[in-house]
Simulated assay, not measured.
Amino acid sequence: MMIDGGHLRVQARQNKLAYDPTLIEKVAHACIEQAQENLLRILYYDCAPYVGEARLPVSGKMHQFTGSGDWLRALGRKDLFAIRQGVLKFRGFKPKRIPISPTALSDDDFVPDFEQKGVDMRIGLDIATYSDERLTDRIVLITGDTDCIPAMKHGRKSGIQMILVSLPGQRLAPELFEHADFKRTIVWPG
């Protein structure tokens, strides 16, 4: 099983759920059909929170971003979980609303802009590795990122069944379904 953590986090927050290792673990196990599948490993792809300083866009004051990756380490200690960690890059600040109001702006009119780097590539490499080495018959994938399509194609060409998981209220890109053998819809675990 492979989980794009950034994608799962967005879906959980849209459904007003607390995003923590317990929820992630419950979602992972809800995706497996116990009668037909044996869970080999849960690969979780995400980034630790950004830690660093940046100058605020209007006042010019320095702002300290703090965060802890403790929750990722806690998740990695759970049975069958392995963490594949990318890097979170700070790309500056962007306006909360567009168009920008012509009135006086303040720092509160902007939000930090972060970009996840390396997560999609790690998912793709793991799909290729598991496929080429025939380590499994099926890969259950939670993602909404169409960048995974080439890896999904590779897995299918190698004889691996690709199962794409859909979460409640989610609309995945149609092209993702074209490169999956099965769509599996789950409900949020209680």
Score class of each variant (00 low, 15 high):
17 L>A: 07
57 P>S: 07
155 G>C: 08
123 I>R: 01
74 A>D: 15
148 C>G: 01
117 K>P: 04
3 I>V: 12
163 I>T: 09
147 D>F: 00
8 L>H: 03
139 I>F: 07
160 I>M: 04
119 V>A: 03
161 Q>G: 09
90 F>V: 09
2 M>T: 03
12 A>D: 10
145 D>N: 01
184 R>N: 13
142 I>P: 06
147 D>H: 04
26 K>L: 14
58 V>P: 08
176 L>P: 03
157 K>I: 13
6 G>H: 09
45 Y>W: 04
12 A>Y: 10
52 G>P: 02
108 D>T: 07
10 V>T: 11
157 K>E: 15
132 D>C: 09
168 P>K: 00
158 S>N: 13
100 I>Y: 10
178 E>C: 01
50 Y>R: 00
125 L>T: 12
177 F>M: 07
82 A>V: 14
140 V>Y: 08
111 V>E: 15
74 A>M: 11
172 L>E: 09
59 S>Q: 09
134 R>P: 00
73 R>D: 14
109 D>Q: 02
175 E>Q: 11
137 D>I: 01
119 V>Q: 00
106 S>K: 05
10 V>N: 12
128 A>S: 10
168 P>V: 08
182 F>L: 11
177 F>A: 13
44 Y>R: 01
3 I>C: 04
36 Q>P: 05
137 D>C: 02
81 F>T: 04
42 I>H: 01
165 V>R: 04
146 T>M: 03
86 G>Q: 01
41 R>A: 14
90 F>Y: 10
117 K>I: 08
33 E>F: 02
43 L>Y: 15
109 D>T: 06
176 L>A: 04
25 E>N: 10
166 S>Y: 07
146 T>L: 04
26 K>V: 11
164 L>R: 00
158 S>C: 14
94 K>A: 13
70 D>I: 08
55 R>A: 13
42 I>V: 15
95 P>T: 06
39 L>A: 05
32 I>N: 04
142 I>Y: 07
162 M>I: 15
57 P>D: 01
105 L>K: 10
117 K>E: 01
37 E>G: 04
190 G>P: 11
135 L>M: 14
